[in-house]
Nucleic acid binder design. Structure first.
Lengths: 146, 146
DNA sequence: CATAATAGTTATGAAGTATAATTATTATAC
DNA sequence: GTATAATAATTATACTTCATAACTATTATG
């Protein structure tokens, strides 16, 4: 049995590599109570204090309603807070707590180890090539950001 | 606002590129009544006549129960047939019909155009580098095939 | 022959993703 | 300056994708 025909397509290889990547990644941060998406949200809040929910949803390309429940979970665990914005009382400014920053740092550390495992032996040059090509694919999207 | 911290991770770029790739791909084959997964299944049956369902599920890393409904759809449209195996009456040999082979060929053609658009200007060398790295990631999985 | 294993199926549930509608607030148009 | 439209967040909901357990029929093993 052969998948030679499918294997001609980059999309096939991306899908399969992605599956391995994401399940290993999730296994790595699951002990911290995080998933890929919740880590991404937490990390963005840590790195961008005062961010609005709609900005964050746009940046990570997730639907606002779905972000709400993710933030609910993070707020419930006191990893972030939703602070009223004086100048616009419709919006919330998102900020990470100390625990949130610490958990984000711990997760980053674990994810770095996970990536090192996935990409062991890949030269910096090859890594950059992959990043460049992935970036190009991403920018192919008509209404894509940046 | 910055995603610089997330952007250090290959997994982040893979996820985002994959999202663009798969939605464009699905848009391209949707007029033929196919999705990424149904195309993959159809193409594997075309390329590997007589394949068993469990072999196919293993090859594409999809759960057998999920494959059943995909095959139901393809069989309903007379793109494939499930033929009894004389030597093992539990199993079915999967075979593509003429219509199935034709649709698979048409889809391949459309997907080639889609990939050319996604990867326009990427050199063969860079393309091979990406394939090699993705392949390595895939083989990282403990119980991974080949 | 009894038991275990396998192929396929059914039913079901969890996770991820998308849409419509609602409330509260702010911006715009007449 | 009030009516209308737009925006931020939320709620409810549904659809797709993906995973697990249990069942039937058949074959292999002890």
């Amino acid at each position: 049995m052969s998948d030679a025909s499918l294997a001609r397509f980059m999309g096939y290889h991306m899908k399969r590599a992605q599956h391995v990547m994401i399940s290993d990644m999730n296994a790595v941060i699951q002990p911290m109570g995080l998933r890929m998406i919740t880590f991404s949200v937490l990390n963005m809040v840590v790195e961008n204090p005062g961010l609005r929910q709609s900005q964050l949803a746009d940046a990570l390309v997730i639907e606002r309603p779905n972000l709400v429940v993710i933030l609910d979970g993070l707020e419930e665990r006191d990893l972030i807070s939703r602070d009223r914005v004086p100048t616009d009382r419709r919006a919330y400014a998102l900020n990470a707590t100390l625990a949130g920053r610490q958990l984000s740092d711990a997760a980053i550390c674990a994810i770095e180890a996970h990536e090192a495992r996935m990409l062991a032996g890949v030269s910096d040059e090859d890594r950059n090539t992959v990043l460049r090509v992935l970036g190009q694919v991403r920018r192919t999207k008509p209404g894509a950001e940046q």
